[in-house]
Every structure is written in structure tokens, then in C-alpha cells.
Design a protein around this nucleic acid. Sequence first.
RNA 1: GCCGACGUGGCGCAAUCGGUAGCGCACCUGUCUUGUAAACAGGUGGUUAGGGGUUCGAGUCCCCUCGUCGGCUCCA
Length: 671
Amino acid sequence: MSEVKVLLVGVEGEAERSVTETTTVGEVFAEIFGQDRSAIAARVNGELRDLSHALADGDQVEPVRNDSEDGRAIIRHSTAHVLAQAVQDLFPDAKLGIGPPVENGFYYDFDVAEPFTPDDLSKLEKKMQQIIKERQRFSRRVVSDSQARDELAGEPYKLELIGLKSADAAEGAGVEVGAGELTVYDNLRRDDSLAWKDLCRGPHVPATGYLGNFKLMRVAAAYWRGSENNPQLQRIYGTAWESKDKLKEYLQHLEEAAKRDHRKLGQELDLFSFPEEIGSGLAVFHPKGGVLRKVMEDYSRQRHVEDGYEFVYSPHITKAKLFEVSGHLDWYSDGMYPPMHLDAELDAEGNVRKPGQDYYLKPMNCPMHNLIFAARGRSYRELPLRLFEFGTVYRLEKSGVVHGMTRARGFTQDDAHIYCTRDQMKDELRDLLTFVLGLLADYGLTDFYLELSDKNPDKFVGDDDTWEEATRTLAEVAEESGLDLVPDPGGAAFYGPKISVQTKDAIGRTWQMSTIQLDFNLPERFGLEYTAPDGSRQRPVMIHRALFGSIERFVAVLTEHYAGVFPPWLAPVQVVGIPVTDGHVEYLQDVAKKLGARGVRVEVDASDDRMQKKIRNAQKAKVPYMLIAGDEDIAGGNVSFRYRDGSQKNGVPIADAVDEIVAAVEQRVQV
RNA sequence: GCCGACGUGGCGCAAUCGGUAGCGCACCUGUCUUGUAAACAGGUGGUUAGGGGUUCGAGUCCCCUCGUCGGCUCCA
């Protein structure tokens, strides 16, 4: 046996080691780490490998720990295999789809005659624990295409994957088949008998005994390979971690997250509701939510004035012709409410005497703004022309996707359209991005990333060169911002590419907020023109942009971001006055008057509850400031603060208390 | 739209095999006048989402519609 030299990376002690030729990664690790089994796989020359991988001369080897992102993905993917084995044990007719790791867990898709029930899930969990107890080995084996087809003859979906054999052929399918050779993982019992096998790239943990800290979460249907035209498979989601503690921590995190769900808080804090009588996805704002929304809008208006926007208003319905010109009826009709057919007249025989015409609720504001631009001749001197509107739009979202305030059917965009020359375009976009990020920061949001959506090859208007130029310009500006930029292939609107700001809700779902879209196409369709210095007619470039995205969605994101604990400037009620007894109400009403005079939203709780109960109520309403007054305070002309964290500050002169509160509101700080 | 689960006073929940719809909070009325997260007592409020069916009898079983939740697909 000849010796080979390998380079160990990411471990303490000697970096280079000599080992005999057939030595595996696992054997080397066992020598170094002894009883420590936290290295569950390795990166060999940058590629993830099983511990059973045999080393070659010059290999660079780095342990993959079970608490690293790679390590967790391997644990999750291996757990998915155990799930699949359990499913085929209990449901022998189940056909396998794919089973990749995902954030916090994994899933596996199955074709079964009957959907799984919650009861099935607990049975499967038990079966999985049995498999884990058996300490089956994950054993890798390279196979030829024909061999794989042979072995997986009973698995139609796997056969389809063998045909693709490309990592990007299907979302998630990269874990089954890679760009290189095909491999099968056999699950071997301790007597080396075959328990189960699956087509898989790996790597895996060495044996099922490395697993066990998992929980099956839910079952859902999912289209095979993500296409609506394919059959639906039953998908089982699970979570899996390297330790019992981590699993517990994650489950607790989910419970906490559920508490800050805007739908729950919206109810508890009396912000808004979705009356069944109105219809799905159509919200009403209650007074407290109304305050929040009004404050948001007021501040937004102020910022738009400062940034050179002009304010316009447009109707909610329009004749079909407008959306024919814009292309919406060709490209977006699925998202539009059906038309209202008006003004048709029939004669006595029922023949059409007057055909009438269709009116549509608007799903977007841009065509309206284009008409404002086109209302008279425009000079280059007016550009950039920035038209702003809180425009309410209606979109017929599919019934299954409506989701509280984050995905409604009627919502209001802080929408503006900027008309400028090609020369002005880039500066305008750069300024816009600065404006967006600044405004989001003012609302306390900093945790987001940018996404660049380019042309959907099946759904676009305009020519390739124009799209190419628009996309490149957006990419340049986005890159200059220094934020993470994630590509979103094919995600653009039909009229132009976009940059969007993505943020996550309490449960980790990603939502688009701000969007900046560059559009060379609608100006063309609407025949928009301005007169250039040389007297020629030129076509403006159009930029669509919304900073909140939709006010409703932004309210939801803010509510979840703050878990309902809004900073004073956004809090629906900023101060509650709490008298120690009824006799102190009048004194507090005077204090309230002073606060009200400075624009503070204040209430005095004059109900017949006891003081302690009033404190409890204000605390549950997450009111930033409680001002308490009793005989002691009145004697000194003072009030006593109780803050949301339960701390207090007693005997504060009224004027000082007012100043403290007003300062916090004006500076938009969190308290 | 698709798959699954679910829908009981304003809110959160209970109701055994199909057999009188209950509880807590909120709300209303009284008594109490109290110093930092729930005073006490009494009271009002439900055609069990809506419609149809099975049954002597339906919150409970079946069908349709509406709505909600979790995913998938699709989007601010």
C-alpha cells in the first residue's frame, strides 16, 4: 500500500497528513476527533463527500460539522430518505418523487392513491424512529443509466429524472441526479441486507443512527416538478436538526412567530378585519388600523413632496379600451375581475340595438397616469415628470393564495410613474433606490435584500434589445447599492424588468415590498411623446415604482416586524392616562389636553375598572406610554410613567412628561 | 385554481355513541374608590357560516355554496 498526502483544512493541529491509499475520510476523522462524531461528512477539494469516501493524493479535506449549514442539509436530506423508506414500508404502493433539504427541514413527495392523514404522520414518525434505531448504513454505489433504469423500473418519477440528469432540470431534483455520474444509495442493515434504496447524489450521514431529532410537520399537495400541468403528489414536510435542543428551539421559535402573525395581531389590536360579507381578500381598516395607515400615508406624502413628486388621482374603473392599449387584457386578464357590461340596449325582438361596452376594475394604475401625461403636449423641460397616487387596485387573486394583508384582492399602492429621457434614466433610478432604502429605514426596516426580475420568455411585450438594455441598467444601479442582489429569472412584469425589495414575515415567508420597474414598452403603446430642445418629438422612458408596494402588505410587514409593539410615532394610541381612582380623572384629562395640543394621540381610561386592570389593558394594547396620576402626583403637579417594559418613572413634572413623549414621536424612535 | 384540514355568541374554547348548546374574557347594571398586568355580584347575547338531505331527533352523518388555515401553482 502506498502512502498518499492529504491536506486537512478547518481542523486544529497538523495540516498535512500521510495516510495509506485506501483510507477513508471517516477513518482520518476518527483518528483526529476520537469519540466526537460531529463531523458527519467532508468537503474534499470543495465537493461534499460521504465519510466513506476514499482519499487520493493531494486531496484537500475539510470536515462538515452537523451544526453547519451543509451539515444540517445532509442531516435533513438523510432524514428525508428515512421518511421515504418508512412511507414505502407502510404504503407499499407509494411511488417516490423527490426529497430535498429545505430551509429548517426537508420534504419528500409521494404518489399515493389516498392523501396522508395526520394520523399517518404519527405512524410514519414511529416507523422512522425504528429505522433510525436499526442503524442502517447509507452506502453509495455508482450505476450506469441502464442499470439505474433497471433497478428503478417501478419508480416512474425517478425514471423521468434519470432522463433529465441535470441539476437545473427541476427544482429540487438536483439532490437526486447531478451533472456527473448517477449514484444509488443503499440502506443496509447491520447484517448487510438491503433495507431500501434510492436514486441520489448524496452525500449522506454514515448511518441512520446519526439522525433522530426530527418532526413531521404537515402534509400538502405539490405539483410534480412544479408545473400546474403535472399531476399533484403528496408532499410531507418535516424539520430535522443535529440535536434535541436545536429541534426544541426551532419548534419554540415557530410558536413565537405565530404570535406575531399580523392576522392574529390585527384582530387582537383591533387594527383591521376581513368581513366575510364583503368577500375574500377585501379588508376594512378599523379606527386603530386607520391611524396606523394614515400616519404611514402622511409621512409618505411628505417624503414624496420633498422628492419632487406631483400628486394625481384616478378612477377605479375604466372602459376596456384602455387595458387593450396597455396590453393588460392580453397579458394580465387572469388577474383582473371580470368586466361589467354597460349601456347595451335590446329592441322588442331581443336584437342588439346598441352594443354597449365593458368596464373593468383597474388592476394597475399605470395606464391612467399615461393618460395624464398624454393630456397635453409635453416639453423636455418638464422631465423627469413624477406622478404619484395612492392608487387602489383590484386583482382577482386565486382563492388559494389570498393571505391576510400580505395578499389581498383589493389594495392600495403608493404608486408613481416617472417619465424621463434616456439620459436621465440612470440618475433617476439611482436616486429612486436611495429614496426607497431611506424610506424603509425610516420605518425601522433594515432586514431585506434586492431581487432582479428579468423577462418571462412566455409573457412580454417589446423587443429583445430594449429588454436587454433595461435589465442591464437596473442591474448596474442595484449593484451600486451594495445590497445583496438575487436573480429572479423570468419574474418580470410583461412590460419591463424590475428590481424589488424582498422582506420576510414572521413565519419566514418572503414578500415583495418596494418595486422599481423600467418600461420602454408602455410609452410606445400609448404613443407618449415630448418635444426635445431641437423641436423633434421624442419618446420618454417610463419608470413604475411603489415603495411600500401595497399599504396593506406594508402594514402587515410592519406589524410582524414590531410584533405589534409599534414605535410611538406609529402607535395607534400613544399615551393612556390611568387614574389611581375616579377622583384623578379630571387631572389626567388636563394632562391629555396638553398632550393633544402637541399632536399626541392620548386617551384617559375613565372606565370603572381598577387601576391594575387599566394597566393590564393598556399593556395588552401595547400602548407606548402609560401616565398614572394619584394624590401624590397631583400634590406636586406631576405624573408617573409606566413604560411597555414594565419599568416606571415617578413624580415627573407634567411639562417634562409631555416633552419626553413629543420628542420620541418626532424622532420616530422605538421605546 | 389544485390537495388536505377546518368553521359553535365580539374573542378564545367545551359539548361522550346522533338525544335540553355550555364556560372564560369582552359587553351591560349595581356595589367598592383602590399607587403599577385581572375587585365582587348580577345580567344581555347563539336558527352552531349559509343552503339542501338522511333521521323520531343533527353542532355531530351526507351533498352544495361561502369563508378560514397549511402547502402547491401564480403575484404587490
